[in-house]
Design a protein around this nucleic acid. Structure first.
Lengths: 196, 196, 196, 196
DNA sequence: TATGAATGAGTTTTCATTCAT
DNA sequence: GATGAATGAAAACTCATTCAT
């Protein structure tokens, strides 16, 4: 990759990162291109140099977010850890990521509303991949007879829902910090799986 | 209340109900007043006769939804049932309601994005009231020594998150119907609370 | 005129009076039918029973105002007074009327903007009649050799302009009351006419 | 100021000028943004690029008009002329300006109707400044013992009223042209001031 | 007569998008 | 590559007016 290409890629990423943050604060329609641009000290026109249209920007932001999340969890999945600890870790990482970015997962809410055919498939695919990461961690536990034989799909979604909801209620000024909250949630959720 | 007044109230409710449904399908910005109106075989102007503006319509829809949810759960809370069964029932009722309204619950996600000061407080109050219903059910269980002594706030939010997330993944054409899914989720979530 | 007719006429006048006052405070476009109606504790519909449309209401308000003004000045014109005192009196009456109604003459400003052919002629006719009242007072003075031989049309308009402008600057909380101001203005204006 | 900036400023002024003219012909509410734009061979959108909203456009038009008027009179005030001639000149200039712009002075009538707090103060300030120009010319005359010792505030307002009213009755097809009318009015008004 | 409802035409306003420079 | 300008389509909202009861 030439210097030029690298510069462009970097700029694109900057835009995406900012776009994720603005988008998740104000929502897709609440955010204007003007706004994203001006937060980056650019003009609208420039943003259009890097992205085809607003759709495209939202889409790529979305994909970036999902890919990062997957990387996070995949990272954990390949660690050498007992299965229970591994799932626990994955949950903690996910929650922390959400709380740090404080963002983005709201915009995951209704992808059908904003994307259509070629894009929506990718999104769903990534979402699914993400779910599957957890499925596999659960499956591993069941096979190791550490977890009870639950309905994986349902339990996975309970876990995802409980975790993603955290942005709705967690506040920095409570007595627990992000990590403590993440640990607590993870521990409670494990109760669903642990064999007794 | 006179006949006329009752008719007006009825109309308002019709509009609210439709508005909830369109709004939750297309989102706040994706929904036009035109659309809501035409689905009710009215004209925009008529809708504006009943509601000050789009904001107002959205706000009242939202409030209606929350109030109904509270009624639902309160209804369960006053039933004569063993505490565990009661919480289970409350969860099932909540999930079924969400799935039936398939519904404005997405717009519950970021109220700050759409409402401001005088309204947002009411919304948060109602949300809180709703949460407290569950808190009390949990507390009852703890006091009856049926549930372990969990951190109520965290567990309540895990439960709410897991339940609300259901709109994201449940599909009518799976092999389980709404009630079965609701029961399954409730049962799994009870594992978090049940003393072993 | 039957009782019924008299009642109707009375109601019409009430509406006109209120309409003049609202109209002159908020302007033609700034005033809604709703507003006029509600100030009279009526509904829009009722107002439409008495007046064909908003146009008509404005027009008749306008005419009422002009006719009253003419009556005022005509009243003075037929008094037995020396010509100078008579003109002075007419001016005072006019200014007081304007200040008491605190109204209406602003809406005289651009009749062409609001009225068209059949109506505009009447308005102009009345306006003219009003001007002519003053013209005749001036003429009387010239013929009596009390006033210099001025260009009547110009002087009349100077006088009208100076008088009508008073709503723009007179404030009740100054040290002079309405009558004093009216007298002062009248006296100064007479300087234009008085032979030296 | 760069070329670009100058171009922008020019465009803004063009819009203002056109807006003044349309506004004064049709009144605030009678004028649509569409109309202003199309007279400038622009689209509505473009006008909004330069002005925040209709309010803003009207406001700035108004201010421009007032500022120009002040400049006009100030220009005269600093000429080397005998005081009586100077006031006469100022009046003529004012009347001519009004008749040429045939314009926006109607909207001077009820600024409270269209503007509110931050704007209205500026408007009133400018109006006042304008009045003060005349006050000073009058004062000069009194001090030079050319004018009698009149109540300046009242006389100033008589003069302004008489002059501003001219748009109501002057018609190009009469036998006198704008300048002649202006001179006549000025001369008559001087009678109020001149010592005898 | 009076009125609550409904209507629709008209206006303001916003914003993603394009494009010449 | 970047940007200021311009555009136009879409949406919210207003209000005079009508009409059945």
């Amino acid at each position: 990759m030439s210097l030029r290409e690298r510069k462009t890629a970097k700029k694109k990423e900057d835009i995406l990162r900012m776009s994720v943050s603005v988008l998740s604060e104000k929502g897709y329609d609440g955010t204007t291109m003007e706004e994203i641009a001006s937060k980056l000290l650019m003009t609208k026109g420039s943003v259009y140099y890097y992205f085809k249209d607003k759709q495209d920007l939202l889409y790529q932001s979305h994909v970036m977010l999902l890919e990062r999340s997957i990387e996070n969890v995949e990272g954990v999945r390949h660690q050498e850890l007992p299965v229970k600890a591994k799932l626990r870790r994955a949950m903690i990482v996910h929650i922390e990521y959400i709380l740090v970015e404080r963002s983005g997962f709201e915009m995951m809410i209704k992808p059908e509303q904003y994307f259509s055919s070629p894009q929506i498939e990718t999104i769903f695919q990534l979402r699914d991949d993400y779910g599957i990461c957890f499925d596999q961690l659960i499956l591993e536990g069941i096979e190791a007879d550490v977890f009870g034989s639950v309905d994986i799909k349902i339990v996975r979604n309970i876990i995802l829902g409980a975790m993603n909801w955290v942005t709705q209620w967690y506040s920095d000024d409570g007595k627990k910090d992000k990590t403590e909250i993440a640990e607590d949630i993870a521990d409670y959720l494990l109760h669903i799986l642990i064999k007794t």
